[in-house]
Computed example of a mutant assay.
Amino acid sequence: MTTPDKGGRSWIWALLFAPYIGLLWLPLYNSAQPEWLGFPFFYWYQFLWVPITSLLLYVVYRRMK
């Protein structure tokens, strides 16, 4: 039984920190402007991270599999 080489894959885990940084750094999106479809920036920015996070999780999963 061989173990996969994980030395080259350590960077892929860093992708999972992007949602944390993007959503926990509140001054980045603490504003009402610009609006999109009547939603203030504060709301649509957070909703935008839902598919981005799902995509990042999928990429990490596929690369680690």
Rank of each mutant, 00 (worst) to 15 (best):
M1V: 14
T3Y: 14
P4F: 02
P4I: 08
P4C: 11
D5R: 15
K6P: 00
K6D: 08
K6G: 09
G8C: 03
R9K: 15
S10L: 10
S10Q: 07
S10E: 05
W13H: 09
W13P: 01
W13L: 15
A14D: 04
L15M: 10
L16T: 13
L16N: 10
F17Q: 05
A18M: 05
A18S: 03
P19D: 07
P19L: 11
Y20I: 15
G22H: 07
G22S: 13
G22D: 06
L23R: 05
W25T: 12
L26P: 00
L26T: 12
L26C: 02
L26R: 07
P27Y: 02
L28M: 10
L28F: 11
L28Q: 01
L28K: 03
Y29A: 05
N30M: 10
N30G: 10
S31T: 15
A32M: 09
Q33S: 14
P34W: 12
E35P: 06
W36Q: 07
W36F: 14
W36I: 15
W36E: 07
W36M: 10
L37V: 11
L37H: 06
G38S: 11
F39A: 15
F39T: 03
F41V: 11
F41G: 08
F42T: 15
Y43M: 04
Q46I: 04
F47G: 05
F47R: 00
F47T: 02
L48T: 05
W49G: 01
W49T: 00
W49C: 02
V50A: 03
V50W: 03
V50K: 00
P51K: 00
P51R: 02
P51Y: 00
I52T: 04
I52Q: 04
I52H: 01
I52G: 02
S54F: 08
S54E: 01
L55T: 13
L55D: 02
L55V: 12
L56S: 04
L56R: 01
L57S: 09
L57N: 07
Y58M: 11
Y58D: 14
Y61T: 14
Y61Q: 09
R62F: 13
R63G: 00
R63K: 15
M64V: 14
M64H: 03
M64F: 12
M64Q: 13
